[in-house]
Amino acid sequence: MTFSPELEARFAKMIASYPPGRQKGALIPMLLYAQDEVGAVTDEVIEEVSRRLNVSRVEVEEVLGYYTMLTREPRGKYHLQICTNISCLLTGGEELFQHACRKLGIGNREKTPDGQFSLEEVECLGACSWAPAMQVNYDFHYHMTPEKLDQLIDSLRKLQ
């Protein structure tokens, strides 16, 4: 399989940045960027990446199970990641997460039936001073409240 020209260019540069014979270094970045484009780490992605980096399938599966951002199943178009770790917990992160569950009618690591939204309770996002914080895909949202979350979800729905 091939990826978009931009991603292919990124991969080419990425693979070249590791010492000769140690291209396996690119494994995790490649899987993550490929997932961003394809939607999930599919069997084809595994096969393609392992072929390009000359690693075995088991080496790929070892990291797939380990890194929480990597997924074999496609997530929603908008993946809502709400932090409930300490700083966010103290400022309403848990309530925010519960609110998101109710609003979307799904639980942790679940996806709405239309495939638009998925939800995940995540660990510290490194946005503690602007808590509670969350991410929609890679976009950060700070100082969240249930009201702001409603607005955010509504505006994302309108984008469809």
């Binding site: 075995s56 399938r57 088991v58 080496e59 599966e61 070892e62 199970g65 380990y66």
Partner: peptide
């Protein structure tokens, strides 16, 4: 190989 992590970590076949 070894996959997953923490208490869920387990051995996986190839």
């Amino acid at each position: 190989g070894l996959s997953y992590r923490g208490v869920s970590a387990e051995i996986i076949p190839n």
